[in-house]
Amino acid sequence: MGTRNFSTGTAPRQSMASSGAAVKARQLAQLQSQLAQLHTNLADTENLLRMTSVQAESMRGLGSWHAGLFMAASKVLGEESIQQQQGSQT
């Protein structure tokens, strides 16, 4: 049984290593792009949440105004209906 002498060239290994490095660099570039997009989306979300908070406070004030108007209208209409009932009874 003899030993065989295989010639192991470095060219295929170098091309595989360089293509692996290119794939890794492309994946890192894609991840960096996605991270930048995520950062932009988070900044937009933060701004939207701030605006929502301001609008919710305004809605609360608007609700208070409406409640006050309904109570005033209820009082006025209630008094008018009482006066009308008393007027019709006499």
Score class of each variant (00 low, 15 high):
Leu77Asn: 08
Gly68Lys: 09
Thr90Asp: 11
Glu79Tyr: 09
Asn5Tyr: 06
Gln27Pro: 00
Thr45Val: 11
Thr10Phe: 07
Arg60Ala: 13
Arg60Glu: 10
Ser19Ala: 12
Ala22Ser: 11
Leu28Arg: 13
Ser53Met: 02
Trp65Tyr: 05
Val76Leu: 15
Ser15His: 11
Gln27His: 02
Gly20Asp: 13
Ser15Thr: 14
Ser15Pro: 00
Leu42Asp: 05
Thr8Pro: 00
Ser18Met: 05
Gly78Arg: 01
Ala43Cys: 03
Ala11Thr: 05
Gly20Met: 11
Met1Tyr: 09
Gln37Ser: 12
Met59Leu: 15
Glu79Asn: 13
Ala17Leu: 14
Thr10Ile: 14
Gly61Lys: 07
Leu38Ile: 02
Arg50Val: 12
Asn41Gly: 06
Arg50Tyr: 09
Leu62Ser: 07
Ser88Phe: 11
Gln27Met: 03
Thr45Pro: 00
Gln27Phe: 02
Phe70Pro: 00
Gln83Thr: 10
Gln84Thr: 10
Gln86Arg: 15
Leu42Tyr: 04
Ala17Pro: 05
Phe6Lys: 14
Asn41Thr: 14
Ser18Trp: 01
Gln85Pro: 02
Arg13Thr: 09
Ser64Gly: 08
Ala56Gly: 05
Leu49Asp: 04
Ser81Met: 09
Leu28Cys: 03
Leu35Met: 15
Lys75His: 09
Ser64His: 07
Gly63Cys: 01
Ala25Glu: 04
Thr45Ser: 12
Val76Lys: 05
His66Cys: 03
Ser15Arg: 13
Val76Glu: 08
Gly87His: 14
Leu28Met: 12
Leu77Pro: 02
Gly20Ile: 11
Ser33Trp: 01
Gln37Asn: 06
Pro12Trp: 00
Ser53Ile: 00
Gln84Arg: 13
Pro12His: 04
Ala67His: 03
Gly2Phe: 08
Ser7Gln: 10
Met51Phe: 10
Glu46Ile: 07
Leu42Pro: 00
Ser58Ala: 15
Ser18Cys: 04
Ser81Arg: 02
Arg26Asp: 10
Ser19Met: 07
Leu31Ile: 14
Gln55Tyr: 05
Ala21Leu: 07
Gly87Arg: 07
Ala17Tyr: 09
Thr3Cys: 07
Gln85Ile: 08
Pro12Glu: 03
Gln27Ser: 12
Arg60Leu: 13
Lys75Pro: 00
Ile82Met: 08
Thr45Asp: 07
Gly68His: 01
Lys24Ser: 15
Leu69Ala: 15
Glu79Thr: 14
Gly20Gln: 12
Glu57Val: 01
Leu31Asp: 07
Asn5Pro: 01
Pro12Lys: 02
